[in-house]
Computed example of a mutant assay.
Amino acid sequence: MNKPVQNCLLCDRELHQNIGWKELLLKTLPQTICTRCEQRFQRIEQQQKEGVVSLFHYNEAMKDYLHRYKFLHDILLAKVFNKVIHEHLKDDTRLIVPIPMHPENLKLRTFAHIDELLKAANIPFAHHLTKLSNEQQSLKTREERLKTPQLFEVINPNAIKDKNLLIVDDIYTTGTTLNHAKKALLEAGAKTVDGFTLIHG
C-alpha cells in the first residue's frame, strides 16, 4: 500500500520525490499528491470542537475528493491524506475505532473508506461497533439527522471496558454520527471517547 506513487493521484502530474536515508530511516510515508493539489485543501487552525478534532475544511477541492473517493469508488485515493493522518495519530495511545459501514452499503461501495484511510496512514485500528441502519446521513436534512434513532451497537463490551477510545470518521457535519457512536461506547463501559475526522463540514 505504501509503494512510492509516481504521479499525483489527483491531477496525474509527475511527482519528483527525493527519498534519502532520512526518509528510509524514519519510514516516512511516500508523497502521493503534488504541491499544487495539496495547496487546494484548507487546513483548520482551530481543530478542537466538542471533543472532536478535524483537519480540513469542506471546500470545493475536498468535495471533489470525497466524490471521487467514496462515490466513484477510487480506492487509491485513500492514500491522498496518508501523511497528515499518520502524523496526527501515530503517537496516539487511545484505541482507534473507525465508524463502520452497514453491510449492505459496504457491498455497494466494495470498500470501507474509513478503514482504507487508516490503513494507508499505517494506523492500527479495531472495529468495536456495528451499524444498525443503512440510511445515508448525507441524504437527510439537519433536523432529520438530529432526530435519528441510535445508529450503532457495540460488538463486545468487554473489549472496550475502561478503555480510552478515539472514533474516526471522514466528515463532521451535525455531529450525529459521532455522538451516537460515543453514546453507545460509553454506555457499554468505555472510559473516555473522543472523535477525529478528516473534514469539518
Rank of each mutant, 00 (worst) to 15 (best):
A121T: 01
G175W: 02
L165R: 01
I167Q: 03
E144R: 08
P103W: 08
R142D: 12
I114L: 13
L139I: 10
N156P: 00
D115A: 15
V168G: 05
D162K: 14
I114F: 08
I155W: 00
N156Y: 05
L118D: 05
L132K: 12
V97P: 00
T130H: 07
V97D: 00
S138M: 10
F111R: 06
H113I: 05
L151G: 08
F111Y: 15
E116A: 15
D170S: 04
L165H: 01
A159L: 10
Q136L: 12
H102I: 07
R109Q: 14
L151M: 12
L146E: 13
L166F: 09
F125T: 07
P124F: 04
L129I: 07
H128T: 01
L118M: 10
P103H: 06
P157W: 02
Q137Y: 00
A121L: 03
K161N: 12
D169N: 11
T173R: 11
G175Y: 03
E116Q: 15
N122G: 11
A159K: 14
T176W: 03
D169K: 09
I160H: 00
P100L: 02
L146G: 09
T141Q: 13
A126H: 12
S138R: 11
K161R: 14
N134H: 13
K119T: 15
D115R: 14
K163P: 03
T173A: 11
H127Q: 10
H102D: 03
N164P: 06
D170P: 02
T176E: 07
A120F: 08
E116V: 08
E116F: 15
H128S: 02
L132I: 05
L106H: 11
R109D: 05
M101R: 04
N158I: 07
L151V: 05
R145P: 06
L108A: 13
K147P: 00
H102T: 05
D170V: 06
E153V: 03
H128W: 02
D169Q: 09
R145E: 06
L166A: 08
R145N: 08
S133M: 04
F125M: 09
H127L: 07
E135K: 14
E116K: 15
A159I: 01
K140W: 05
H128L: 01
L165P: 00
